[in-house]
Amino acid sequence: MNGFVDTATAPGLVLDTPLRVGILNAAWNVQRHNTDHRCVLDMASLSAFDASLEVGFVPGPWQSLRCNANFVARRLGAPLPFPRIRLANSQLGSDVLYQYGSDLRGIVLPSRRRAPPLMATTGFPSLRRVLARGADFLEAQARIVDASAGRAALLHFHTDTMRELYLERRPHDRHRALTLPFFLPHLRVLDEAAVRDKFAREETLLLFVGADGKRKGIETLCEALDAHADTLHARRVRAVIVSRDTPGCQRFKALRHERQLPREQVQALMREAHLYCMVPHHESYGLVFVEAMAAGCAVLADDDLPRQEMLDGGRCGALVPSGDAAALGAALMGLLDDREELLALALRARERAARRHHPLGVASAYAQALSRLRGG
């Protein structure tokens, strides 16, 4: 036993020949930690998890360089140096094409050849404060999807919430809109016995991980910890905060702060932690929540729509309004009052992560979706 779940939860796809998938995005990004590009690189590793796929990048080195020049120009507000980066017919030997995100930095498909069918990963606003901007704003967002992925045979969203909000604006696209979770090749699901073992310890570890601490709600968390410092000390609760921003706790002293840690050390902390607590002011999704769930943490998060879907309406943790330290403190104390319920939340979180996000199962789901394109 290695303490992890290593089996897929979805059947593999069996094809006579591998499905050749060409990724239209650039093969590298000048901004090393760009989240979208990390997701592109994750998608490029699909074939390591499902042998029915053969995945590679379509743009060559010079085309990727030009894409990055466009990326820098956009960040600086300057005109694109390469407004049209045309692909050659010879580069489109894939069975299907894949595109992540709405901006391909000027890449243009050849006009003299019928391109392979395309699956495009896109998004749509799903945060309450963004939705509150009104119908005109949402229509403008739908037009962005139209412009960037209008020719896609499949429109891929990461959450049901995003997909349904988009379909409210474009109901005629229901036949080509689907939901698949993020593909997380590095995700490790802790087995149930290991989760129960860590909850058998008397001490409780609370974990917060967010580079941009202020946006992720570090100040609200510190206010809640200070308000209940004496009780938390009596219950042997300690906290680890990993963030570039310094936590401002005054009364709560059982705190360790790390400005930055390697992925492996963060994952080790998650496997040790009992409760992952982050109530962000603005977070479009939050992959770190999924990683914490897979590591057997109960989750205390904000109550915006993406987290409601992620945490199954609160069955895998507690949901509180952003910026409300009193509500956060009350929820925290409520979870700590009932150790058995805290364990039950952690086990449900782990089970949900295993069922929805295990990389073998997710890779199989992507393979089945992409194979639909080759089948017409």
Rank of each mutant, 00 (worst) to 15 (best):
A353R: 06
V108R: 13
G3I: 11
D312K: 08
V40D: 02
R348L: 08
A325H: 04
A44Q: 11
L180M: 10
G317D: 01
A224S: 06
P185G: 05
R259W: 05
Y98V: 03
T179R: 14
P171C: 02
L104I: 09
L347Q: 10
L328P: 00
P306A: 10
L87E: 06
R163M: 13
A367I: 03
D303A: 13
P247E: 09
D103Y: 11
T7F: 15
R66A: 14
T121I: 04
L19D: 10
L41Y: 01
M1A: 13
L342V: 03
L335T: 00
K198R: 15
L300Y: 05
S94C: 12
P359E: 11
P61C: 07
A325I: 01
A353W: 03
R236Y: 06
V290S: 04
A51V: 12
H357Q: 07
A88Q: 15
E309K: 07
L118I: 08
Q91H: 07
D304T: 11
A8D: 11
R356E: 15
G93A: 05
L328M: 10
R114F: 01
Q99H: 02
R105N: 13
N68R: 07
I85P: 05
V209K: 01
R372A: 14
A365H: 03
A120K: 01
H282D: 15
V209F: 01
T204C: 14
Q265A: 15
M293I: 11
P181N: 07
V55R: 09
V195Q: 09
Y98E: 00
L221R: 00
A353P: 05
A234G: 08
L343I: 10
D337E: 14
E283P: 02
V266G: 02
R235P: 06
A26M: 11
L342Y: 02
A78L: 15
F289A: 06
R66E: 09
A200M: 03
L311Y: 03
D50Q: 14
L332P: 00
P110C: 04
V209R: 00
A149D: 00
K253C: 11
A234E: 15
E283D: 12
Y285W: 14
D95L: 05
L360A: 12
T246C: 12
T231E: 13
A367E: 03
R129I: 12
L205W: 04
A10S: 13
L328W: 01
V279G: 00
E164V: 08
Y366C: 09
G376M: 10
L184T: 05
G329N: 00
